[in-house]
Simulated assay, not measured.
Amino acid sequence: MEGSGEDAAGGSIAVRPQPVEALGKGEGSRVKRIGLLTSGGDAPGMNAAVRAVVRRALAAGCVAVGVQEGYAGLIEGWMEELDHRAVGDIIHRGGTILRTARSEAFRTPEGQERALEQLRRHAIDGLVAIGGDGTLRGALALHRRGFPVVGIPATIDNDLAGTDVTIGFDTAVNTVLEAINRVRDTATAHGRTFVIEVMGRHSGQIALMAGLAGGAESILVPEVPYDLDDVCARLLRGRQRGKRHSIIVVAEGAARGFEVAQAIEARTGLETRVTVLGHIQRGGTPSGRDRLVASILGAAAVEVLLQGQSGVMVGVRGDGWVATPIDQILATPRPLPEGWIQLAEVLAR
């Protein structure tokens, strides 16, 4: 059953996913050859999205064409047709079989025109772009030049409006949470304070969710001002109550873990160690939730193209999905859940 609705930013069309047997065959659609690419930072679940796009396209009687290495490969024409077998046994794999790269050339009008020439040369009628905000900006550029394109949000940062969650975020949070659990064991054994630095240059979503779920004493994120004196005071109060260890989670955009650790040792005298998780947050087997979200959105992107829409991103909303104009998404910041930093501090006492 289909329905329509509007998200907080307005202008979204909500459609409940239909069973496979109810999916259309694409009759009457001008889109017959669908290109797809992954761009920017990789995120667990990208392969599941690639698989869904390809198999939904094939089910509609379309041809699926994979673009290697993102917009860089689009400019160079690195494309090949993908069949069911090409995307078999990839739903559980991290990374992306299409590989990914950043392209400065595509940011220029000349680069975008070269990409359009390659799309015409390979007879591509529509494109699915899988990635984060940079990927969406590239998709919007093609849309504004008249080429049909739909975006799928895949970024561990979970920093895009227009969707409940982005592909890769759940896996990244669970990776950090596992690290917190392991660090807590050694922190308890040695009676130490540990600072765990996680990814998030502009968004503290990973730090907040993993820190809250992991019982961190303090969580430092770029969106919220913090005072290291308050952090240190909280640590000392915990020691006075008999706590043998403490965990501080820091998003890289808020501070550097080693700088925070040095400040803590200098102000409290507590032995402090640092763990920088880095790119392990991007890798690994995607979680069940990320696979499910990727599968829903991959199929939804094809549906949208077959319906003749362009310049939109598909995102999950409740048990359905929505299609929201990309320019609207890029203009809408995604704030952290209100009050969750304070909640984490209360629960860590």
Rank of each mutant, 00 (worst) to 15 (best):
D157M: 05
M1A: 05
L119D: 02
L140N: 01
P148D: 14
A64M: 03
G298L: 06
R241I: 14
D42P: 08
R237F: 11
P286K: 15
R93V: 11
S4E: 15
I91V: 15
M209V: 08
L82E: 12
N158M: 04
D83F: 14
L228K: 01
R291D: 00
A323W: 01
I280P: 00
H279W: 05
A49Q: 04
L212K: 05
G132D: 07
L305N: 02
T272K: 09
L336S: 03
T155Q: 04
P153Q: 09
L58T: 04
C62E: 01
P17I: 09
C232Q: 12
A60H: 09
I264R: 01
I34Q: 03
G35S: 05
G5I: 00
P44Y: 00
D133Y: 10
G77W: 10
R267I: 05
G215S: 06
I280T: 13
A255R: 08
P225D: 09
V304I: 11
D157I: 07
R237G: 12
G253W: 13
V195F: 11
L160Q: 09
V198G: 15
T275C: 15
V173C: 13
A129D: 01
R334A: 03
I124S: 06
P335Y: 06
E76W: 12
D157A: 03
A233R: 14
A139D: 01
L220W: 03
A344D: 09
E80R: 15
A72G: 11
R30C: 05
V150H: 02
R237A: 15
Q240H: 11
